[in-house]
Design a protein around this nucleic acid. Structure first.
Length: 801
DNA sequence: ATCTCTGTGATTTTT
DNA sequence: TCACAGAGAT
């Protein structure tokens, strides 16, 4: 994720001796190498040096794992259940391919979903083959690899090689502008919704032209498709791509340029895919294209752990693998090395209720250990109290808090636990939540750096043009915008032009000129200054650091710390450009946690992790099979929720406890809840019911209150009142009051070179009124206005009167 | 520009 | 209930 990813192509990747053999084998690798294996086919030099025999790393594997590692040719699906050594198989397989000399590191494509997984694989392979990780240039996330390929062929998809990746914030900002331009009421049709829709299209590999007619109506009364097209056009103008494009444009590239596709098909002798159950349609199509020529594709995944359907993952991809890749071999990894027999039994029993699955039966030799505990509680507070007590007891027995996790379905559940733990003085940490890169101050800082590097990055420029406040409010920005659009130039360039005139107030003009000047100055220092020093200088000189120093809010200090952390992070890269290249894609830095704390997170973020003790609160109908999931996706939704439960249980090594609350406060009102259907699906032999002794007596009376509050409160809810009020209002979306003639002038001005104006012409200006042109200087006019006096203006802001 | 008020909606999250 | 975003007021 750091420097090594910037390295393109395959550099030296193995010790010299190994490199030699790889070269040789790669040339005529097919039959000879296969026949030779498993005999010791290392070069004499290596054998003489006493290096471990080729197969030594295979020894610790169980038969299925070994089969998965050694079945190198043809399509292979490895169904790897939870805790069955999936990562080990992947990394050993890569090492094996390299060791046999069947491919060079640069000829292996290995894709993961997260940076974390990619990093882990790099690390493990590095320690297996001897540290030289640079040799795996094509090991990374789908997105990172997508960027790498796109950079090399940017022109083929109407981009410049210097394109940047748009983050979600900027994406929304851009969509909002489009909606405003189209006069769409953002209240009714929020930009986020459109973003989600576009994302879902991109997930499925659907271009604007191919949007199904019905789906276009999912936004703005049928404007969905047109807006998607407009958005794509705008992205190209700005030379940016969004996350979805990283794959979409790759697909387009491969489809439109067969020679480019062929180049990669030949390059990748072996392909490996991690977490295949999480791939979306676009990723699947991408892999299919690459594997057409050379079917050595190995997908590792677990259909029972597919929990990202709602963001485009297609479980179907893994279910259909054998049809998609004819002649595919399927290997099941069912030996679990993580959990006790009871935990595994409970998890297996639960997931067995799903119909759409390939079917695996996890087993373990470990038959010791406790059954899964089950306890009902009165409400969420009691649930937190019970779990808090359990944890304190574990702590007293000497268990590390780091080995304890509470996995919730939805983040609002965390609150009760946090309150309780603060009360008890029990240290905890929340995993997930807002990420470093998503913090406002980090994004602002990055915006400054981005504009310094590339002055035509309009989106970033807009973000910080008035941050910190420098008197460039809406009206000033709008004027710059208008000019930029009329001329078809970036905002910074429009700003340069406008400060030569008197369109803006003297104060705004001075401020804007200062900002532009600063950016020019900073840009001039890129080559002569260390990038981290430059970043610091920019943040200081722009007044950004001062802005937070002057703020008295308690978070201001953290923000300044984060900025320092950003600079420290930058230091891991050689140049500013190198840092910026990776900033959008990889900023998942979490400070290494050393303290002993209980882990609190959602079930989703627990995937891939494991703990000695796991608590699973909130197993209630409507929450653990989440109501929304049921409403929106019916049976498949229910099955995904069940997989979520399965993922939760299989995180536990030695103990797991499921709890549910009979009453839960949601949106302010108390609701009585019934235990999740999943609870009754657990095999009784693996479960111990803990009697709930925590409440007595007052339950019924409280319940009465619940009903009264609910019944009487309804007609006072804001929602109802809103509905009443809005009834007669037939809704008249505000029309933007902009004379059409202005538009006409704008179009004319943008097409004509130079101004079509001459001295003496009577003109009209929105702000200054009527006047007569005194001087024409290219696009700049000096006009004697009847009321405002002599002003310098840009020609596109006036019209003939 | 900075605040206060009002309306709104409320799973899950990576890149 | 409560947090947050956007509009409107000062």
């Amino acid at each position: 994720m750091r420097r090594e990813e910037v390295v393109l192509g395959g550099g030296p990747f193995l010790p010299a001796s190994a490199c030699y053999i790889s070269e040789q084998m790669a040339k005529n690798h097919s039959s000879a190498a296969e026949a030779a294996y498993p005999e010791d086919d290392r070069p004499l030099s290596q054998r003489a040096m006493g290096r471990p025999a080729a197969a030594s790393y295979l020894e610790g594997l169980n038969p299925e794992q070994r089969d998965a590692v050694e079945t190198l040719d043809g399509p292979l699906l490895v169904l790897a259940g939870a805790g069955t050594g999936k990562t080990r198989v992947l990394t050993t397989r890569i090492s094996h391919i390299l060791n046999l000399g069947k491919a060079r590191p640069g000829e292996i494509l290995a894709v993961t979903f997260t940076n974390k997984a990619a990093r882990e694989m790099k690390g493990r392979i590095g320690s297996m083959i001897g540290g030289a990780v640079e040799g795996m240039p094509w090991l990374g996330t789908f997105h990172a690899i997508g960027v790498k390929i796109l950079r090399r062929h940017a022109e083929a998809v109407d981009l410049k090689p210097s394109f940047t990746v748009l983050d979600v914030d900027d994406q929304i900002r851009l969509l909002k502008q489009l909606l405003a331009a189209e006069n769409i009421d953002e209240k009714r049709w929020p930009a986020r919704m459109l973003a989600g829709l576009i994302d879902s299209w991109k997930n499925r590999g659907i271009t604007p032209k191919r949007v199904p007619e019905g789906e276009s109506f999912a936004f703005g009364n049928g404007k969905g498709q047109a807006l998607y097209a407009a958005y794509q056009k705008r992205l190209k103008e700005l030379n940016v791509v969004d996350f979805g494009d990283l794959l979409m444009e790759n697909l387009r590239l491969f489809q439109e340029q067969p020679d480019v596709l062929a180049q990669y098909q030949q390059r990748f002798r072996y392909m490996l895919v991690d977490e295949y159950q999480d791939t979306n349609v676009a990723q699947y199509l991408w892999l299919r294209l690459l594997a057409q020529e050379n079917p050595n594709i190995c997908c590792v995944g677990d259909d029972d752990q597919s929990i990202y359907g709602w963001r485009g993952a297609e479980v179907d991809n893994i279910l259909r693998f054998e049809q998609d890749f004819p002649g595919a071999k399927v290997i099941r990894l069912e030996r679990n090395y993580r959990s006790t027999g009871h935990i595994l039994g409970a998890a297996s029993g639960l997931i067995a209720h799903n119909e759409g699955r390939l079917g695996k039966t996890l087993h373990t030799e470990d038959q010791s250990g406790d059954k899964v505990a089950l306890q009902g509680c009165w409400d969420d507070e009691e649930e937190a109290r019970v779990i808090g007590e359990d944890i304190e007891q574990l702590q007293r027995k000497g268990h590390a808090l780091n080995e304890i996790a509470i996995l919730v379905r939805a983040s609002f559940q965390m609150r009760a636990f946090e309150e309780r733990f603060l009360n008890l003085g029990l240290p905890y940490r929340v995993i997930g939540g807002p990420r470093f890169y998503e913090r406002q101050e980090i994004r602002d800082a990055i915006a400054y750096l981005a504009v310094t590097l590339n002055p035509s990055n309009d989106i970033k420029f807009e973000r910080i043009v008035n941050v910190p406040r420098r008197g460039l409010g809406d009206s000033s920005v709008k004027a710059v915008h208008q000019l930029a659009r009329a001329r078809g130039v970036p905002l910074t360039q429009a700003a340069r032009m406008i400060v030569e005139t008197e369109e803006l107030t003297a104060r705004a003009r001075k401020s804007l000129a200062g900002l532009i000047g600063s950016f020019d100055r900073w840009r001039g220092m890129i080559d002569s200054m260390k990038h981290t020093d430059l970043a610091e200088l920019i943040l200081d000189e722009s007044g950004y650091t001062a802005m937070w120093q002057n703020e008295k809010s308690p978070q201001a200090h953290t923000r300044l710390d984060n900025l320092k952390e950003l600079i420290r992070f930058m230091d891991e890269f050689d140049t500013l450009a190198g840092f910026m290249e990776h900033v959008t894609l990889v900023m998942d830095r979490e400070a290494e946690e050393t303290e002993d704390r209980v882990n609190l997170m959602t079930l989703h973020s627990a995937k891939g992790l494991e703990f000695d003790s796991v608590f699973l609160p909130g197993w209630e109908e409507g929450l653990c099979p989440h109501q929304r999931s049921l409403d929106e996706s019916g049976r498949s939704g229910l099955e995904e929720e069940r997989r979520l439960g399965h993922v939760g249980l299989t995180r536990a090594r030695v103990r797991a406890k499921i709890t549910f609350a009979q009453n839960r406060r949601t949106h302010g009102t108390w609701q009585s809840a019934i235990p999740s259907r999943f609870i009754d699906e657990l095999p009784v032999d693996h479960v111990d019911v803990v009697e709930d002794t925590g409440y007595g007596g007052y339950g019924a009376s409280r319940f009465d209150t619940v009903e009264t509050v609910f019944a009487s409160g309804f007609y006072e809810t804001p929602g109802w009142q809103r509905a009443q009020r809005n009834r007669p209002d037939t809704g008249s979306p505000q029309r933007r009051r902009e004379p059409l003639t202005i538009e006409g002038t704008l179009v004319a001005a943008s097409t004509a070179e130079g101004s079509g104006f001459s001295t003496g012409t009577r003109v009209f200006h929105q702000k200054f009124g009527y006047g007569r042109i005194a001087v024409v200087d290219g696009n700049k006019l000096t006009v004697d206005f009847e009321k405002a006096g002599r002003k310098k203006v840009v020609d596109s802001f006036v019209e003939r009167s």
